[in-house]
């Protein structure tokens, strides 16, 4: 169940997220669902698979902006990490970084499921 307490338990800064949504809880939840369904997650995985670091950077960067606006802190941090590596086109362990992102996203997505 998506609830403020459950989000908090996963480390989201719900106070900030709610303020950003003008205090409207339903609206906040709606945006979280929307944000976790973002097509850029698929694109990130695909572009990383193809070693297209530029495409991956664009996708990660966009996702980071969304997670930040939703104050899903652990997801935001994982996305920031991979975004910065990609920005510098670093030779990093992208599969591991992607896994971090997916783990965080899946944790939040699990809340939305029932």
């Amino acid at each position: 169940m998506l609830s403020i307490d459950a989000l908090k338990a996963l480390g989201a800064n719900t106070e900030e997220g709610l303020t950003r949504c003008m205090g409207k809880e339903e609206f906040y939840f709606k945006l979280i669902r929307m944000g976790l369904e973002d097509g850029n997650y698929g694109r990130l995985e695909q572009t990383l698979g193809e070693k297209d670091l530029e495409g991956a950077f664009e996708a990660a960067h966009a996702l980071k902006g969304v997670a930040g606006n939703l104050s899903l802190t652990p997801l935001y941090e994982a996305l920031s990490e991979i975004t910065e590596r990609l920005r510098a086109r670093e030779d990093a362990d992208y599969p591991a970084l992607l896994q971090d992102v997916k783990t965080q996203r899946d944790a939040f997505a699990a809340l939305c499921e029932d």
């Binding site: 945006l31 944000g35 973002d38 902006g65 969304v66 606006n69 939703l70």
Partner: peptide, 13 residues
């Protein structure tokens, strides 16, 4: 904005 979430937020403001 290409991200629907960000668009929705700004739109509400």
């Amino acid at each position: 904005e290409d991200e629907p979430v960000n668009r929705a937020l700004l739109s509400v403001y």
